[in-house]
Amino acid sequence: MNAAVDRKKPRLATTSLAGCFGCHTSLLDIDERLFDLVERVDFDRSPLTDTKQCASCDIGLVEGGLCNAENILVLHEFRRNCKLLVALGACAINGGLPAQRNHLDLGQCLQEVYLTGPGIVGGQIPNDPELPLPLDKVRPIHEVVRVDYFIPGCPPSGDAIWKFLTDLLDGRTPRLGYPLLHFD
């Protein structure tokens, strides 16, 4: 492999925070175009590569919103390392399904789940420092870091993701026109 050419290949990292991996599945949905993609980018940290730490990257795709402290740490890691940060899918963009807990009080939630819910005897709210603490509300990622691009959809279609990435890689301003732009 030619190292000089290789260095020019943009690096792509992806992660799923408070999401359902649906957006990642959609990324795989670009089918045989995946081969083109692998030709054109190198994957860094991603569930697809199992790399756990993000190195300096060109593009970071973030699926899912923020529901706990760890989500925020990972998001910060992505923001630090990625030149362009992309919110991928509804949950990253407005909190999505997990954010529908936002009208409930976190304390009451925890209490009910671990202490007072049906069938619970002698329960305890886990306090292991290894476990990330939940946030009082689930938040979209743009409320915590600057986000450069957004790909809406639940999940965004493979076509939408492909269009976005190829626009970006070809040096065009990414644009999802109708009908690729979808919120559902």
Partner: peptide, 11 residues
């Protein structure tokens, strides 16, 4: 934003 969870877990 973690205050509520800190209080509940005592951490």
């Amino acid at each position: 934003a973690l205050a509520g969870a800190r209080q509940m877990t005592g951490r």
